[in-house]
Design a protein around this nucleic acid. Structure first.
Lengths: 149, 149
DNA sequence: TTTAAATACTACTATTATACTAGTATTAAT
DNA sequence: ATTAATACTAGTATAATAGTAGTATTTAAA
């Protein structure tokens, strides 16, 4: 159960947009450079974020991306949903367990509980929360820098 | 972020073993029939459970599988760990983020928090808890049976 | 009105993981 | 010896991941 790069890159993308909230649209090129992620790949990742209204765009020259809503009103869970397409830990088959045994029932309940626990955490923080943390780190730069030998 | 069948089947497998705790070893064949899962595939899935000491075996005729420890002392998190090989949502690359930007740092912390939330839930219940639920369902059978049209 | 700068779209691809299946070897009770 | 079981090894089809590449479209500004 590994998190996809889509979700990880996408969150950092959103944080970058949050960092420039209220300012001019941000270029994908700049985010790509800042986060050291392929610009083309970011272009793919941002599509579901747009379609979920989390990101707004201005096309053409002087264009770029801005947040679709205030960062304080965007829960991280929404971002993850957009990128992972709802984190259904379950089968998610439409065929609806025709003849479900007791083992399946109990374990399904258990996994649904896990899903609820995850959702609770993901919805407990807003994009603004992360951006605030990001800003504070940028102010006090190499405070606890760790050197890799 | 979908749960693998390994984890789902494996949990049901462990529940079946828990159901027969203190009795004779259980045949893989019987579990396969009960849970409607390929016996050969279960044979693969049970390997990491053995190597983690969660399952003990008796080979040869009249052999089979038993729990490696009392069900009350097995947290579900241990089962998931054995099957998913530790749920590192992160990169888990050994190369240790040579030059980590602030965005990476903040988002990494966030994902680690998610991992902790998941672990908290997974470790909050023991195998015995699930087996107890399983038994109670078996006693009051079609109480709230749901018919699929 | 042209040009340049940007996003939008479409298609392809290499690699890896998943979810199995099959066959043979080994063990141990009877 | 025979039989009933697990243990091991190797393969495979499918799908998802993580991209890359190229072209089309839009729009501000010169």
């Amino acid at each position: 159960m590994r998190l996809s790069t889509r979700a990880r890159y996408g969150l950092r993308l959103m944080m970058d947009l949050g960092l420039h909230e209220g300012k001019r649209p941000v270029l994908l090129k700049d985010i790509a450079r800042e986060e050291r992620i392929s610009e083309k790949y970011l272009g793919q990742i941002i599509i579901p974020l747009k379609s979920h209204g989390l990101v707004a765009t201005r096309r053409g020259s002087r264009g770029g991306y801005v947040l679709g809503r205030p960062s304080a009103e965007i829960r991280i869970g929404e971002i993850v949903d957009a990128l992972e397409g709802d984190l259904g830990l379950q089968d998610a088959t439409g065929e609806q367990a025709v003849a479900e045994g007791p083992g399946e029932l109990v374990s399904r309940d258990f996994w649904e509980g896990l899903g609820r626990a995850m959702r609770l955490y993901l919805d407990s923080q807003t994009l603004q929360d992360l951006v605030t943390r990001l800003k504070s780190i940028r102010k006090e730069p190499a405070q606890d820098a760790h050197y890799v030998i």
